[in-house]
């Protein structure tokens, strides 16, 4: 078992923080909560974090101020901005200050999970790290898939989907969530539920064709669940 990553959630909206913390705990993280800049700074001194989820609009100031402080103190801390403002200039400003990623509220938890894992992988130079799940081996940086040690050819979107499922095991992921993930990560604007269905169908076909177990289960036609016993 890998060591649990400490995640700092800086969020002033208590209900949202509660859900996020519950979700992160469930997914093998060890989350901490700070409701403003002051308590965030205090926690950053006390604990050793792998990543910070930073809300920009905080009661005691703009979260932007914290980006530089965090990155100057320790560059390996993954920093994901979470903001209700889908403003392009804010996004660019945040990324220029050193943030690693930007999520616009409302976001879907599986999406947050996938991004968190990706940011932590990248920053901890786990470039060649393999993600191994039973017979499936994923090499995220090279976008390679091995099933039972055999190479499996997947399209970029299929690989993205598989990585997304592996990062969110045993969770019901609705079609809406998947559609949003696909359109935001692959800049594909014409994405419809039907297309999610087509991609998953193709992915499942390829996986079973290479002798992989059928992990991706349809849930009442409203979503999918990557089930691992």
């Amino acid at each position: 078992m890998l060591k649990k990553h400490n995640i700092l959630v800086v969020e002033d909206e208590l209900e949202l923080a509660k859900s996020t913390l519950a979700y992160l705990t469930e997914n093998g993280f060890s989350p901490f909560h700070a409701k403003d800049l002051k308590s965030a700074r205090k926690l950053l001194k006390q604990e050793n974090f792998s990543a910070v989820l930073l809300d920009l609009g905080l009661p005691d100031g703009d979260g932007m101020a914290l980006i530089k402080e965090i990155k100057n103190a320790k560059n390996e801390i993954g920093l994901i901005i979470v903001s209700a403002k889908d403003a392009l200039d804010k996004k660019i400003e945040g990324l220029e200050l050193g943030a690693d990623d930007y999520l616009t509220k409302p976001y879907f938890f599986p999406e947050l999970n996938a991004r968190l894992k990706s940011v932590i992988r990248r920053l901890n130079l786990e470039v060649n790290q393999e993600i191994i799940l039973n017979e499936i081996t994923l090499l995220p940086e090279q976008m390679r898939t091995l099933i039972h040690g055999e190479e499996l050819e997947l399209t970029a979107k299929e690989f993205g989907l598989l990585l997304y499922f592996v990062s969110n095991q045993n969770r019901v992921i609705s079609k809406t969530t998947l559609g949003e993930f696909m359109s935001s990560n692959y800049a594909d604007y014409g994405f419809t539920d039907d297309m999610v269905y087509t991609h998953i169908k193709n992915l499942k076909k390829k996986l079973s064709g290479s002798g992989c177990d059928d992990y991706i289960k349809n849930v009442y036609g409203v979503g999918y669940k990557f089930t691992v016993a």
């Binding site: 209900e15 949202l16 996020t20 209700a84 403002k85 889908d86 409302p106």
Partner: peptide
């Protein structure tokens, strides 16, 4: 924008949890 998006985020996160 801010005031609406945050409650929407709460709704969708709770719905996702319930699922």
């Amino acid at each position: 924008s801010h005031e609406l998006q945050t409650p929407l985020a709460i709704i969708s996160s709770k719905a996702d949890e319930l699922m």
